[in-house]
């Protein structure tokens, strides 16, 4: 079983992925693309093409953790939540240092280019697995919406949307090859008045660039919404259908 390590930052609302292999697997088997945020050494003077680490928002991490718990995906891999810590144990450090010193000497000798990527535990820090419970159980609105979006079809890609004036942009597949089809707005509560003006203007613009505005809404009381419910998209799983529902908004082209 392979492992995808997500390193959680000091505040826990984003995670970093440092392994290229993990990034590739997230992309191909989970439809999670993340955001490359590091400097690409080969082209260090631009921001279009960046390098690891890959940044993942907490709702995406929460979804991944739950998904792998449930044995979804191909079931072969585990997603671990880790935090790196400076190694305290002296002998361990020494072990590492000897190994490294040898490698270093070898590199110096040959005077060749060297790789600075290591295995997870070979540096002066080591990854400690965290209890992912709190994230796995995260019930914040954004987690609910994210999950509901992915439940429909896990190969959908939910990307950050601030550049487009949305919470998320939704791609039917890998953004490398397909356009975003939806702009997902921040969720409203079922009984909360819609911000008509803001909603309609973005819907109008979205329509003209062949996108749809998706408005998620969540119920205040999670049990109440079940009673009258015929209005839920059938493809949504039992898990989320009570909490999140979606309406799509498109400009008609007149008026």
């Amino acid at each position: 079983m392979s492992c995808i390590d997500i390193e959680i930052g000091p505040s826990g609302h984003v995670g970093h992925v440092h392994s290229l292999e993990a990034a590739r697997r997230l992309r191909t088997s989970h439809g999670v693309v993340g955001v490359l945020s590091g400097t690409l050494p080969a082209a260090a003077q631009q921001n279009c093409f960046l390098y690891l680490p890959l940044v993942l928002p907490h709702e995406e991490i929460a979804w991944l953790l739950r998904r792998c718990d449930d044995g979804d995906g191909d079931g072969k891999e585990k997603v671990r939540l880790v935090r790196r810590q400076v190694t305290e144990n002296g002998s361990q450090l020494q072990e590492v240092s000897r190994k490294q010193a040898v490698e270093q000497a070898r590199r110096d000798e040959k005077n060749i280019r060297f790789h600075m990527t290591y295995d997870n535990n070979s540096g002066i820090t080591h990854s400690k697995e965290l209890d992912p419970q709190y994230l796995r159980e995260c019930q914040c609105t954004r987690c609910e919406v994210y999950t509901a979006l992915k439940e429909g079809d896990a190969s959908r890609v939910v990307a950050a949307g601030s550049r487009f004036g949305a919470q998320y942009t939704l791609y039917p597949g890998d953004p490398l090859r397909v356009h975003a089809t939806m702009l997902v707005l921040p969720a409203v509560k079922n009984n909360q008045p819609w911000d008509v003006r803001a909603l309609l203007s973005i819907a109008r613009l979205a329509t003209t660039v062949r996108k749809t505005v998706l408005l998620p809404s969540t119920s205040d009381t999670k049990t109440r919404a079940t009673s009258d419910d015929t209005s839920i998209d059938r493809r949504q799983s039992h898990d989320t259908q009570n909490h999140v529902r979606f309406y799509r908004l498109e400009w008609t082209g007149f008026g």
Binding site: G152, L170, S231, Y247, R248
Partner: peptide, 13 residues
């Protein structure tokens, strides 16, 4: 008066 379509769900992407 402005006119907008409202459709349910996310299914037809």
């Amino acid at each position: 008066v402005v006119f907008y379509y409202i459709t349910r769900g996310t299914s037809t992407i």
